[in-house]
Amino acid sequence: MDPFTTVTGLVASLDRLNVDTDQIIPKQYLKTIKRTGLKEGLFYDWRHTSDGSLDPTFFMNQPRFSGTSILLGRDNFGCGSSREHAPWALLDYGIRCVIAPSFADIFYNNCFQNGMLPIVLPDGDINALFDTVTATEGYQLTVNLDAQSISTPEGNVLQFTIDPFRKSCLLNGLDTIGLTLQHEGDIAAYEAKQKLAAPWLFSG
């Protein structure tokens, strides 16, 4: 996994509540057996109108948002299906960071597994960012994970909180399976204890 340290990039905004993972990556893109190439499906149904042409009002079809790496969203971003194809598709498109007032649990967790940073900010900060992004072409932010800060071009600094373990994994690009495997002794001891305490779990 690529480490996440600092990202400076263009910000796009998606002004909708409850953006679900069916929208982020529709079902027809879930038939793949690979993690790559999913940007083709990213927000496919919102990117296209009913006749199949590109919808010029959607951010991905607007030249001013070309090359976006930070996405601004609303409450409950990433709700619904557990499909990790959602963060894979965002990442494939170049988005490393999503900023929203709240996230759905599974999506939030899936981001960290892929070197992406989901940031929770209070409603007030989010509303102000939406206004600024809409008004300012080429608006960029700098996200610094170590400092847990977002710096604006105007010189403001917004602080965010993050679980220390997730932060460490992301900063160092850690392989969490590798970390768990270091505790083989603990896992084996747990299994030995459970075989006695709850043998039906092992007999099948």
């Binding site: 557990s82 990790e84 599974i106 597994q113 969490t176 399976i177």
Partner: peptide, 15 residues
Amino acid sequence: GIGTSEVEHVLSTQC
């Protein structure tokens, strides 16, 4: 429910 990375985590470690 879990994502695919966690599916891999459980396959490998049962944790």
